[in-house]
């Protein structure tokens, strides 16, 4: 039995057998909540390899697209620095720094370029949140 199947099975036991047998409202609610948590952990474990691979591919594509967009015309230095940082670390911290740099330099970018860059970043964010909601919802 895989870890995600194990968690799912424990969650089912909590929900089906343990929770209903508890008389007091508060501990019964806690048992049902524990079942929900275990179920979500299980689903997260099951999806993790595919989600990790998809997230890495999305991030690679984002960096390629942003570098290409910046190569066409030099951006404000803060944006170039943020994109370079994202290229190195490819993580959420660098992505946040890039988004902040885009907004902070909005005036320096023309509106169409600001929208284009932010839209490209948002495409990656949308794909990421769709994967996370698959586990969380």
């Amino acid at each position: 039995m895989s870890p995600d199947q194990l968690l799912e099975r424990i969650a089912a036991t909590l929900r089906r057998d343990i929770g209903p047998a508890i008389g007091d409202e508060y501990p019964r609610t806690q048992a049902f909540m524990a079942a929900v948590v275990l179920q979500k952990l299980g689903r997260g474990l099951a999806c993790a390899p595919a989600h990790r691979a998809a997230a890495a591919a999305d991030m690679d594509a984002l960096v390629v697209d942003l570098e290409a967009a910046l190569a066409a015309a030099p951006p404000p230095p803060a944006i170039a620095t943020a994109v370079a940082g994202l290229g190195r670390s490819r993580d959420a911290v660098a992505l946040c720094a890039l988004i902040e740099a885009l907004y902070a330099n909005r005036e320096a970018l023309d509106p169409a370029r600001f929208d284009a860059l932010l839209s490209r970043v948002r495409r990656t964010l949308r794909a990421d949140i769709d994967r996370r909601v698959e586990v969380a919802a």
Binding site: T29, Q30, M33, A34, V36, V37, K40, R122, L125, R126, I129, D130, R132, V133, V135, A136, A137
Partner: peptide, 20 residues
């Protein structure tokens, strides 16, 4: 120790999706 609070960790992405 309220497990309802632990469960809200999965409410964060749901609300972020709404924000998007």
């Amino acid at each position: 120790d309220d497990i309802r609070l632990a469960r809200t960790a999965w409410s964060v992405p749901v609300v972020l999706e709404r924000a998007a």
